[in-house]
Design a protein around this nucleic acid. Structure first.
Lengths: 258, 258
DNA sequence: GCGCGGTTTCCATTCAGCGGAAGCGAGCGT
DNA sequence: ACGCTCGCTTCCGCTGAATGGAAACCGCGC
């Protein structure tokens, strides 16, 4: 009967519901959600009811909850900022190279894939739009890391460096050298470090005031590793066209939450 | 000093903040938001603080709020259900026709564009991914309407039928006839009804149990209107391949909120 | 029909959230 | 330099909105 046993704010409870969808499947029942969030059943029920009424959550025909289309539509604007700008150039990149092309930004300790155009060749899919991969295991990630503030880069290298494949570079000292070299030469390459059978190359995309805000890259079958650098001029060209397009925005328009 | 003057629940207040972003620009200041939501400044400030800390909102370097990438990432799963399934087929459709290709579902009284591949030709953009257009002004919308439950279709025709261009069909009786014909022949055509200079054609995509859940369509320059029907076989082929891919999901997986 | 897992509704209790007011601080005009 | 304005941030005593235990409800299988 007490009013809010836990001390958590209402807002944080609502958000913890959304959080549950991030980590545990796209479709959850009331009791699962109550379990996952630690909320009493009736409280969870009421909050879910409000979220559902508003359209933030939808219910399938078994009564389970899913993230709703209204929330999707709303948050398109966030992805859209970069995406809408970059999309045409990304498509150019694809038509020039015929290889899987993508653009990513840094979000926390991971590379967040903002958009991608798939090649018809069946390159192993390491990630998807809106998905994330560790910064040290992909070409775009390495680029983002290489141009990041030194304090961040160093802190990152201190942390756990997950090995995605047997080829992932996980030695902090070696990685530090590699990143330095990347910053110098202006591009990064990975060979089966995120996914067996795939290699990739990426270059930075700077916003106004030289701050690197994103990275564009290509993914190829690892059998074609030797052709990677051939795409560099095209990649650079596309990157600088994206930069020109971004330049119209206020600085920091893409970059969010340190 | 009173506790919650308005009678609105905390959750609804939080959601009203998100609502403000739907209708008024992608970037809003504290005082704008307080104004728009009708919340006292200090209350808005606290709620925004929580949303920001969680990552639902981001702040640009002028301190204004924007919808954050965490929310975007989270809600990708909603769009992803249909999008990830349909994407490859949509890309096939594009490479077969070289025309702007899109897929949409019904959300409320509007067609919600779930995904699109742009032609390089500069077809007037009537909408964007995650955007909406009235059901009666586009080919995909007409298809969705034509296969909708009769009670819904009739209610829709009673309502205000906005004229997007001088060519938009807004006579309820004529539209009813047109929809009947569309359901019969299995495709819809619009000629500059949503946007001057563009014409479009669309066919239904049925989920399990014949329920029409989405529509795929092409947009062409209106100068090419005579070639529209030539694309019908390709369009139908792609639609049925999407149907096959959808068939694995539980029924109602895409359809949400009546 | 009866028990079981899950969902929905009810309502007296109480502390989390409220919001008025005061404190900052950056920009601007004089 | 100085005061003024405008918008953001922090503080804190009061109170009704949110809480959660319990009980009703609803299918479903045995």
């Amino acid at each position: 009967m007490r009013a809010n046993e836990t001390g958590r704010t209402v807002t944080s409870r609502v958000l913890s519901i959304l959080e549950a969808f991030e980590t545990h499947g796209p479709s959850l029942s009331l009791s699962q959600l109550a379990e996952l969030t630690g909320l009493p059943l009736s409280t969870a029920h009421r909050l879910l009811g409000e979220l559902h009424a508003w359209g933030a959550l939808a219910r399938d025909d078994q009564g389970r909850y899913q993230v709703g289309l209204r929330l999707w539509e709303l948050s398109q604007s966030a992805g859209r900022r970069l995406r809408d700008t970059a999309r045409p150039y990304l498509q150019d990149l694809f038509s020039l190279t015929q290889e899987t092309s993508h653009i990513a930004i840094r979000e926390g300790n991971e590379a967040l894939y903002v958009d991608r155009v798939y090649s018809s060749k069946r390159v192993p899919r390491a990630s998807r739009i809106g998905g994330r991969l560790p910064l040290h295991a992909t070409a775009v990630g390495k680029v983002l890391l290489a141009y990041e503030e030194p304090w961040f880069r160093e802190a990152y290298l201190q942390g756990d460096l997950e090995a995605r494949t047997t080829r992932t570079h996980i030695d902090p000292a070696a990685l530090a050298d590699e990143l330095e070299q990347i910053a110098e030469q202006g591009h990064a390459i990975t060979l089966e470090e995120a996914r067996a059978g795939a290699c990739s190359i990426a270059v930075p995309v700077a916003g106004r005031s030289d701050q690197v805000e994103a990275a564009v890259g290509l993914v190829l079958l690892s059998t074609q590793r030797k052709t990677l650098t051939r795409h560099l001029p095209v990649l650079r060209g596309v990157a600088s066209r994206i930069e020109a397009a971004i330049a119209r925005y206020p600085s920091g328009y893409l970059r969010q939450r340190g």
